[in-house]
Design a protein around this nucleic acid. Sequence first.
DNA 1: AGCTACATGTAACGAGTTACATGATTAT
DNA 2: ATAATCATGTAACTCGTTACATGTAGCT
Lengths: 179, 179
Amino acid sequence: MALAHTILAALSNKPCSGYDLSKRFAENSGCFWRASQQQIYRELAKLEDEGLIVAEVLPQEGRPDKKIYYSTETGREKLVAWISEPSEPTPIREDLLVKVLAGHLVPQSLILKELDCRRQVHLQQLSVYKELERERCQGLRELPLESQCFCLTLRRGIRYETEWIAWCDEAIALLSESE
Amino acid sequence: MALAHTILAALSNKPCSGYDLSKRFAENSGCFWRASQQQIYRELAKLEDEGLIVAEVLPQEGRPDKKIYYSTETGREKLVAWISEPSEPTPIREDLLVKVLAGHLVPQSLILKELDCRRQVHLQQLSVYKELERERCQGLRELPLESQCFCLTLRRGIRYETEWIAWCDEAIALLSESE
DNA sequence: AGCTACATGTAACGAGTTACATGATTAT
DNA sequence: ATAATCATGTAACTCGTTACATGTAGCT
């Protein structure tokens, strides 16, 4: 259900095409929502069927026509209703932790390598978020509400990555000790 | 793919029935893997089809027969192969953050209430993990490797919940200021 | 009398992934 | 020449959720 609402929220903010939506997701919402192009196209078609969004077709030359989607009044109502109901935490499913738990079945060094690799992935992602924070969250308290909200999601991303890095360090320290 | 491997890992550790597996997941692996009973039964049937596990039927009286599943040699090989390949971080999808980002569409107080509610959920979960840590992670460095690995997953859970609580505090502070 | 625990499963649906298809434009 | 970007979509498949079905035993 939530992908539909994420799209409605994005379109309420600024109408755009499926292609552009997909890029906006990757750039602005990457730290808390991920969706493939295919998923977005399918969901847009469904939302249009249900009358929650409408499309305006922009003919283009040499390229496929562009379909700009707009949220309808019904769409906005549905979105507000969804925001107003309580939501539950997303259940966690993390491959790496399954591997750590079953780690005694393989050579220790393999797990350590994996942990180090993950540490680097999170370091990388962290630096992306920090750069975004520098660009868009200066003087947080003076920014308009919408920017403050965006920065809060970024802060969540930063905390998330930081926490992963710290845990990797902890795990690496403990497991390399017992070798 | 990962549910299959999570099950293989659990069965390698200790053979058991689908019913018991489901309970073990909830108790021991809750902080990083969640699966419904139905999902587990379906996956077990599939794994049996593929010869990665075998079932021994324990007839019972007054109750449905119990099927105890064991990992086969092939099953263990598949598991080790999976552990040995690098894994990617799970993509994040978090309803609450979508709501925060679109928060300007509803009264501020609604978002604040939601944040406070989430904070409590994470506080609750945190205390569960801390209790488990107290019971099973004393003298960590002297424990057998398998226990250390379990405690590492617990530590991840504790960090995760702690981080959420801190973020909720931060978000509540920022958003109640601008009222 | 009604709830929880035990123990298994089927069926339908919703959400996410992967592969395939098309075809022009622009940059290296 | 080749890759990336623009722009849309279909189809098949896997994974996760929800509802339904069955039936005993024990507790309150």
